[in-house]
């Protein structure tokens, strides 16, 4: 019953593992777009990825942002940019890879959504009665071919360990790849710069995803463990909601669900997926 991925899907780069999890000489396997894959890091540090059914052909591979990326088609020469990752004073962390029984686009849409903070991340990212999603701007950037949401603001009960009162936090969201979202969040310690949190989705099947989380933080107060634990708590709260979404695939027909103004970014995302010819993990609009 599974969809044959379109060229637009096959030609993308996909994350399959944190780079640090692939130790030299250790063969590992995973699943991508319903296909079994094996991968191994050689003694020289170089990576090889191949289909479980075809040991003779090496698949494309690159290592970026702490993760190993491969493709089942002909991928672009380079992955989307996250320039902040290269800044020397940041802490770049692979914060975990979590399996969720939902389509990758549903997981991305949830990552873009602020309205659920008071209900799903109560007391952490939001808190009743502060439920308003204020007007924000969304554009599909033609130059970079990505969805960009700016001027997003939301009341957060405890934005940082140093903050005792709730404050309004500012966010910028980018969707530079159909199954990737990058969040920029104002950092109380350095008002002119932003923390970066990215979700890299590995669609194992149409309704099963492994979400890889990457942090690029300015904060040097928290330990690695506490930052990982924080992100995993947040994702653990989202998971039961995501797994109870029906249908699990993201419907691209505008009449499937009821958008409100707060969903501007999701509407732009759905439209962008349609335009790009993404057919995997979605229910395409009827012709």
């Amino acid at each position: 019953m599974s969809t044959t991925p379109s060229a637009a899907v096959l030609n993308l780069w996909y994350p399959i593992s944190a780079g640090e999890d692939a130790k030299p000489g250790q063969r590992r396997s995973t699943v991508l777009l319903d296909q079994g894959l094996n991968y191994e890091r050689g003694a020289d540090g170089g990576l090889t990825v191949w289909r479980a059914t075809d040991g003779a052909t090496a698949l494309p591979v690159i290592e970026r942002y702490g993760f190993i990326w491969t493709s089942l088609g002909t991928p672009p020469a380079e992955l989307f940019p996250i320039p902040e990752y290269a800044e020397s004073d940041r802490f770049n962390i692979c914060a975990g890879s979590i399996g969720v029984n939902v389509s990758a686009p549903r997981a991305i849409e949830n990552f873009l959504d602020m309205g659920h903070f008071p209900y799903v991340h109560t007391g952490i990212l939001g808190e009743e009665p502060h439920t308003e999603v204020k007007e924000y701007d969304v554009e599909i950037s033609g130059e970079r071919d990505e969805v960009l949401a700016t001027r997003c603001r939301f009341f957060q009960p405890q934005a940082a360990l140093s903050a005792s009162e709730g404050i309004e936090v500012e966010y910028v969201y980018r969707v530079p790849h159909p199954y990737v979202a990058v969040l920029y969040k104002s950092c109380p310690a350095q008002p002119s710069r932003m923390d970066v949190i990215a979700i890299f989705c590995q669609p194992m099947g149409e309704e099963m995803v492994r979400a890889h989380l990457m942090l690029s933080m300015l904060d040097d107060v928290n330990t690695l463990t506490s930052m990982r634990r924080f992100q995993q708590t947040i994702f653990g709260q989202d998971r039961p909601i995501l797994e109870n979404q029906y249908p699990k695939k993201l419907p691209l027909d505008p009449r499937a669900e009821t958008p409100i103004r707060a969903d501007k970014s999701a509407i732009a995302y759905r439209r962008w997926l349609s335009q790009k010819g993404i057919n995997y993990g979605v229910i395409p609009e009827a012709a």
Binding site: E109, G115, Y119, P240, I241, N244, Y246, E257, T258, I260
Partner: peptide, 27 residues
């Protein structure tokens, strides 16, 4: 029908407040 019209989350995981049913996802 077991889905919130907004984002399709099952209403069977919603909250019965006596006179209204509240969706878990966005309230």
């Amino acid at each position: 029908e077991n889905r919130c019209l907004h984002r399709g989350v099952r209403l069977s995981i919603g909250i019965n407040e006596g006179a209204e049913l509240k969706c878990q996802y966005h309230g």
